[in-house]
């Protein structure tokens, strides 16, 4: 379906502070595949990382241990079939493409942690959420999966939530970023 545009629930372009202290961008088109694999299956062994951690696979797929027995695989847009096929489904293993089901955004910059600390009660200090840490929690009252994934030498988080909350969450994070100088795009409705 090359001609059918993938629509993100997030209606706004990137938001950032002029000094780069914090920026926020839509990454919803990222391929997201959830794998559930019982202990002892080949898939569980192949995926490798335990709950709470992540690793970058040689094929460019980011493998995150999102829950006990559950992994979420992130890859470039449009790679869902390929990523799903890479999982050994021998045994009690299930693979679900959730690319359409989850909105995703990236928050980065030296103030990213301070901004998130306004809306998320999880301890984000380096000891408790180091680069590569995977965790779930409430962000502005929406349950999200978070990945600390430093990028271009900056602190950065990938945040994903149920798709229908995507626009609300993006707007709320944008609002939280205004303290650090971010300008809200026109028409961005906070509530």
């Amino acid at each position: 379906m090359p001609d059918i545009e993938f629509k993100s629930p997030i209606a706004h372009g990137p938001v950032s502070a002029p000094d780069g202290s914090v920026s926020l961008e839509d990454e919803t088109s990222t391929t997201k595949v959830v794998v559930r694999a019982a202990t002892g299956t080949a898939a569980a062994a192949d995926l490798g990382v335990p709950y709470g951690q992540s690793r970058l696979r040689a094929d460019g797929t980011l493998v995150c241990g999102t829950r006990p027995g559950e992994w979420t695989l992130f890859a470039a847009a449009g790679r869902a079939t390929e990523v799903a096929a890479s999982v050994d489904t021998d045994g009690f293993v299930n693979v679900v493409d959730v690319t359409h089901g989850r909105a995703m955004m990236r928050v980065s910059g030296p103030k990213a942690t301070a901004m998130l600390a306004k809306v998320c009660d999880i301890d984000l200090t380096d000891d408790m959420a180091p680069d590569g840490a995977v965790f779930s929690g409430s962000v502005a009252k929406v349950t999200c999966d978070l990945l600390r994934s430093d990028w271009r030498g900056e602190v950065s988080y990938l945040i994903s939530c149920e798709r229908s909350f995507g626009n609300y969450l993006f707007a709320t994070l944008a609002d939280a970023s205004t303290e650090f100088g971010a300008e809200l795009p026109t028409g961005l409705d906070i509530h």
């Binding site: 709470g52 951690q53 301890d123 000891d127 408790m128 959420a129 180091p130 840490a133 995977v134 965790f135």
Partner: peptide, 15 residues
């Protein structure tokens, strides 16, 4: 307390 939390939290850096 921090040492204990780091040990028992999946995402944390091991102490």
């Amino acid at each position: 307390n921090r040492h204990e939390r780091r040990s028992s939290t999946a995402r944390a850096r091991s102490p």
